[in-house]
Design a protein around this nucleic acid. Structure first.
Lengths: 193, 193, 193, 193
DNA sequence: AACTAATCGAGACGGTACGTCCTGTCTTTGA
DNA sequence: TCAAAGACAGGACGTACCGTCTCGATTAGTT
C-alpha cells in the first residue's frame, strides 16, 4: 500500500485558495485576476498554489468546478417546468468568467488539450448531466419526443443562454419561460391533419 | 477646410495590422496574442497600432469585424435549407476567439461598456441580421410559425454551435442538418387530434 | 555611419539606477539587496534595469565601477607618503560589498567568466593602476628597490587591507602608517656589514 | 543528572551534512549553494540541518571549520622556508568561498555580529595562529626583525594570496617563493653604510 | 514489554526575489 | 505629421530558496 510521506497538504489552504480565486474571478474576471492576488487574499504563499495547480488556468478550472455542486436537478411535475427551473438556474450564473475561460482553453487546445479535457469533465459535463437526466425522464414520461437527440437539445438549451448574453447582455426576467417555450414548440408550423 | 496635415496614414499598414492580428488570433488565441507580435508580423511599430485602436481588445474587435462580410445570406428554395446552409457556415467558424473576446468584454463591462457595444455592433449583430432575414422570410413564406420569437430562435441556433464546441470540440459533418432538425421539430410530442 | 534607431536610453535612469544600487549595497549588502528594491528606489521599472545589465551581479559591478573615479593618485614628496595616502584611501572603503561580490564572482568563474573579467577590468584594475603608478615613480626616484615585483607588492598592499578586515574588522586610525612601515622595511633582519 | 532523553542525534548525519556542504561550496560557491541541495546530497531532511545550525551561513561556517585541522604548522630549518611552506598551503586553498562568506558576514555585521565572531574564531583565527607561531619562532631564532608587527605581517601574507586571486585568478607555480621574497626584503632600498 | 521523548526523512508552509514578458505611453530619427 | 524603432513605468508570470512546520516511522533510555 502506497502511504504518503511528508507533511500533508493543508485542507484549509485548499479551501482558502479556491474561495479567493472564485471571489476574484467574479470581481475582476479571468484576465485581470492575478495568481498573486489570489495568494494574498487566501493568506497563502504563491508556491502553495503552484504546488496544487499547473498554472493560472488550471487554478481557475478548479475554482469553477467547486460551483458544480450548486447546479442541482429540480423535481417538478412536468418536464416543461423542470426545464424552466433549469433555465432559471442558468440565468443566475455569471457568464463572463465561464466564457473567457472557455475561450482561452479552446484557443490553447493544441498546446495543452488536457486542460480543456479537465474543464469539460469537471465543469461542463456535470451540468450537462443534470439536464440530460431531465430529458431522459421527460422521454420516459412521454412528454418529450422519443427521437430527440438529447445532446443537441442540451446544446440548444445551454447555448441559448450564452448567445443571449453575447448578443444582449442581461436576460429579461421572463427569459426562462420564453426560451423553453421557443424550444418546446419548435420552429416549424404544425402540420394540418 | 477639413483637410489633414502632414503625412497621411498608410493604408498598407491598416491592412497589414488587421491581417496579422487575424492570423495570430487564430494561431494562438486572444490571451496569448500580444500586440507586440502583431506589430512585428505586420512590420509596423507598436505606436502605429495604438494610433488606430484604443487597446488590444479594440484591435481584436476591428480584426474580427473584417470577417463579417464573409457571412452572407444564402438563398435556397426552403427556409429549412437556408438554415442548414447557415449552420454549415457556422461550423466553419473557429469559435475560440469569439468566446474569449466576449468573455473578456463581459468581464470588463463595468469599466468599458463601449467596447462591448462596439463588438456587438460590428461582429455579432451583422451575423445575427443575416439569420434574422432568413427567419423573416420563412415566416412570410408560411414555413415558420408566426409566433416564433426570432431573437430567441437565433440564440438557440448560434448558441447550439457554441455549446457543441464547448462540450465536445469538433463538430461532426452532419451537424448542420442534425441541429436544424432538432430545432425545427421542437421538443414536445405532437398533439393528437 | 551607424546611427541608432528608436528612443535613446535615458541618462537619468542610468544615474538613478546606479545611485540606488550603490546606496542599497552599502545599506544591506550584496545578498540582501534586491533588484526590485533598486528599481523601486530609482523610480524605474525592473525591465529598465535588465535592459542594461544581464543580471544582479552585472548591475552591482557597474555600480561599484562608478566609485573607481574617486580613487585618485596622490602626489606627495616621497613614495612613502604616497603609499600612506593610498592606505588611507583604502581604509575609507567599505569592504563588505567588494568582498561578497568578489567571492561570488570567483565562485561562478566556471559558469560566467566574463563577469569576473568585467569586474577586474572595471573595478580592480583601475585601482591597481593608481598604485602601480606610485610604485613606478618610486623606483624612478630611487626610493624603492629596482628588483621589486610590482604586482606582488600591490597584492601585499591591497591584500593587507582585506585580511585586516576579515581578521579584525574596523581598522585602527594609525593603520595606514603602520602597514606601510611593515611592508617598507620587510621582514628580515638587516644584514650586518 | 544531565542526560539526554529521546533518540540521540545521528553522527552519520552530522558527517554527511558537512561533507555535502563542503562539496557543494567548492562546486557552486556560497550564494549558489542551497540548503535544499545540501540536504538532498547528504540524504537528510532539511530539518535535520536546521536542528544543528541556525541558518545557511552557520552551516557554511561549520563546514569550513572542518578544514582547519588540515592547515598545519610546518617545521623547516629556516623561517623563510617555513613561510614558503605556508604560502604553498595557501596556494592550494580555494579562496572563493572564504571571500563570499566573509563578505556576506561583514554585510550582516549589524544584524548578526555573532556569526562573524564565530567565523573568525573557528576558521580565520586557527589559520592565523599557525602563521603567528612561525613568526614568533623566527623572531626568537633571530631571523626576523624584533620590531615586526606580527598581525600586520600576517595580514600582508594572507592578504597577498587573496589579492592575487582577485586580480589575476590562478597563481603561478613559483608564487609561494616569490611572495615570500617580496615581503622578506621589503620595499625600500637598502641603506648605504 | 510498555512507555516516553527526541530524532529521522520527507515534504508542505508563508514569504520573498529572481529574470522574463507584455501593456499602453513616450521619444527619438527619418520620410 | 506620420512612420519604424525601441525605451519607459508598471506589474504578472512561473521558478527557486529560505527557514519553519507537520507527518509517520525509528531509536534510544525509563518504568
Amino acid at each position: 500500500m502506497k502511504r504518503s510521506l511528508g507533511r500533508p497538504r493543508s485542507a484549509a489552504a485548499d479551501e482558502a485558495i479556491l474561495a479567493a480565486a472564485l471571489e476574484l474571478l467574479s470581481e475582476v474576471g479571468y484576465t485581470a485576476m492575478s495568481v498573486e492576488a489570489v495568494a494574498s487574499r487566501a493568506g497563502v504563499g504563491k508556491a502553495t498554489i503552484y504546488r496544487r495547480y499547473e498554472d493560472k488556468t488550471d487554478l481557475v478550472i478548479a475554482a469553477l468546478s467547486t460551483t458544480t455542486a450548486d447546479f442541482r436537478v429540480p423535481l417538478r411535475s412536468t418536464s416543461r417546468d423542470e426545464l424552466i427551473a433549469i433555465a432559471r438556474s442558468l440565468a443566475e450564473t455569471p457568464p463572463a468568467v465561464a466564457l473567457s475561460v472557455t475561450g482561452t482553453l479552446l484557443s490553447e487546445q493544441d498546446e495543452s488539450p488536457e486542460l480543456l479535457d479537465h474543464f469539460r469533465e469537471r465543469v461542463i459535463e456535470p451540468r450537462r448531466e443534470v439536464i440530460r437526466e431531465v430529458f431522459r425522464r421527460g422521454i420516459e414520461r412521454g412528454e418529450l419526443r422519443t427521437d430527440t437527440n438529447i445532446e443537441l437539445a442540451i446544446d440548444a438549451f445551454t447555448g441559448s443562454f450564452l448567445a443571449a448574453h453575447i448578443a444582449r447582455g442581461e436576460l429579461s426576467s421572463n427569459w426562462p419561460r420564453a426560451i423553453v417555450e421557443t424550444l418546446w414548440q419548435g420552429l416549424s408550423v404544425p402540420h394540418a391533419h
